[in-house]
Every structure is written in structure tokens, then in C-alpha cells.
């Protein structure tokens, strides 16, 4: 969450609750409702590392609120995060390990593993279908996230087919 908060603070200084709202507004339903406690903990760490600084702002009838702003070091860290290439999905995943190791153990044969995994992926896809149908067209960020997940699943399924042709 660190770089996400840095990015929001690069736009304008804000206090914790405003950051929560900004996350919700920016991501729509694509962000699982951000936990305010986690936001404060993260802000505390960012402050300790010198990436943000806080000023107390007095409020009438209420305790002071802390407004956070980005430091030069924070901006530098944010730039690095944005500019470095992002890792793609890992393919040597848990299923891959099972697939390779299964025949050694004699516990399951590969065909059965592949078939079970295929149905699992399709059931995930079915959830995404439902989700896509339920997501309003205005929630564009969420729609993009869902479409991305669907394309990844489609690729996973094609890869399963390759495994089946090759190993079975």
C-alpha cells in the first residue's frame, strides 16, 4: 500500500480518512474497501522512513488532525516505483510444482490433476462472468481489472491444454 498512498499524496496533501476516500473514488469496486487502520499504520512507517511528513492542523471542537504531505525523498521513491518494470505473473506456481512432482509421488496422475485444475479455473471464470455482469459500466477501473483477470485465466487454460498434450 505504500506506493499507492505516496501517489495519492503526490496529488495533494491529505489526512488518513481523505486517503481512504480517494482510494475508493479512484478504484471504484476494484479495491477491497481500504482499511483505515492499515492506512494509518502505513502512513506512520512512511513518516519514519522520511517519505512523508505530517503537520498538525487544529480543528474546532475536535482533536487536531494530521495532514500528510510528500517529501522530496518520497517523490523520488514514487518515481522509482512508477518507472521500474512490473513483474509479470509467475508461472512456476503451486500447480506447476504439483504437476511436475505428482507422478513421482504416485498420489495423483497428471491427467486428473489437469482436469481438476481446469474445472477450478472455469469456476473462477464463472465468478468473473457474474462479476462483470454486476459491475456498472461507469466503474471502468473495476471493469479493466476484471477483464485482465479473465485474460489471465484464459491463458492459464490454454497452458493446461498444452500440458495435457505434452505430458499426458
Amino acid at each position: 500500500m505504500r506506493p499507492h498512498l505516496l501517489a495519492l499524496l503526490a496529488k495533494e496533501p491529505a489526512h488518513g480518512y481523505e486517503l481512504k476516500q480517494a482510494l475508493e473514488q479512484t478504484f471504484g469496486s476494484a479495491y477491497p474497501s481500504p482499511n483505515i487502520g492499515q492506512i494509518y499504520v502505513t502512513l506512520g512507517r512512511l513518516e519514519k522512513d522520511g517519505l512523508v511528513r505530517a503537520v498538525d492542523v487544529e480543528q474546532s471542537n475536535r482533536p487536531n488532525k494530521k495532514v500528510y504531505y510528500l517529501t522530496a525523498k518520497g517523490r523520488e521513491s514514487l518515481t522509482t516505483w512508477v518507472e521500474e518494470p512490473t513483474e509479470g505473473p509467475r508461472v512456476r506456481d503451486e500447480f506447476f510444482m504439483k504437476l511436475v512432482l505428482a507422478p513421482l509421488t504416485g498420489i495423483a496422475d497428471r491427467m486428473a490433476l489437469i482436469n481438476r485444475q481446469r474445472r477450478h479455473y472455469l469456476s473462477l471464470m464463472s465468478d468473473l462472468n457474474d462479476l462483470l455482469a454486476r459491475t456498472p459500466a461507469a466503474d471502468r477501473v473495476a471493469l479493466l481489472l476484471i477483464e485482465g483477470a479473465m485474460l489471465h485465466l484464459q491463458a492459464d487454460l490454454e497452458w493446461l491444454e498444452r500440458c495435457q498434450e505434452d505430458l499426458a
Binding site: F27, G28, S29, A30, Y31, P32, S33, M111, N115, R116, R118, R119, L122, S123, S126, D127, L128, D130, L131, T135, D139, A142, L143, L145, I146, A149, Q164, A168
Partner: peptide, 23 residues
């Protein structure tokens, strides 16, 4: 696969929630 049925089963429907929760 190769002209024979190698798997025949139901596709489960499971999770509901928002995009951020499901993905």
C-alpha cells in the same frame, strides 16, 4: 482428449463480492 472423455464434472459457482474482493 484423443477422442475420449477424460473428465466430466460440474463447474462450481462460488464467490461473490466486488472486483477487488474476487480478484
Amino acid at each position: 482428449f484423443d477422442g475420449a472423455i477424460v473428465d466430466d464434472g460440474r463447474i462450481a459457482r462460488r464467490r461473490t463480492g466486488t472486483a477487488g474482493e474476487v480478484i
